[in-house]
Design a protein around this nucleic acid. Sequence first.
DNA 1: TCATTAAATTGTT
DNA 2: AACAATTTAATGA
Length: 226
Amino acid sequence: MPAASSHDFIDRCAWAVDLSPEQRERVKRVTTVREYAQGDYVCHKGEMAEHWLGVVEGIVKITTVSPSGKSVTFTGVPTGGWFGEGAVLKSEIRKYDVMALRRSRIAFVPRDTFQWLLDTSLPFTRFLLMQFNERLGQFIAAVEYERLLDIDSRVARAVSSLFNEHLYPSLGNTIEISQEEIGLLAGISRQRANQALKVLEQQGLVRVDYGVIVVLDLEGLRQYGE
DNA sequence: TCATTAAATTGTT
DNA sequence: AACAATTTAATGA
């Protein structure tokens, strides 16, 4: 079914540029793409991980349930981001839930192909190492942000975590995201997201346009509230 | 290119 | 949650 042209997004992935034509061909052949509506779950905690997942278009959020029972967002993953490598690598179950914040298309790379790339491509292995390192950084930031009760700070974190030049290189300093989606991401109401974004805009950290957020001071955004 | 309209998003209560 | 205002995108003259 998948004509080569329908999987062109593979060519634009940072981890694919250094693959051999044969490797890329195999990836394109076995990769499937599924579409999800807003609010749909891409995968659930506890499921066996059979695929490495990429956001072809849209945005998803990765959440876990804290011991106290409340849902806490680990991070959002925008277009161009890949996730789920941890569970695939170790043939484990998913450690989190993944929900689409808007209509999104998700790519599924089968586990055996993922393993094969790891075995045969040094550039791919390097990419994965980088990805793990960046995610570790995000995790550390998330642990700190857990104790931040201030809503404005949490929104600042949620937005700044979307801007990572290694994990999501295609993003630049602008992201198309509505305030409702910010609310979903940060676990707050759209109204409160609107309020928080105004505060951040007044501080000169972001510019809020129609359906768009432009980051003016990424470092300031990351450190906001500390 | 401009005007009209519908849909999405934002501002406010 | 509801409503009004604003912006965008699509349509057709």
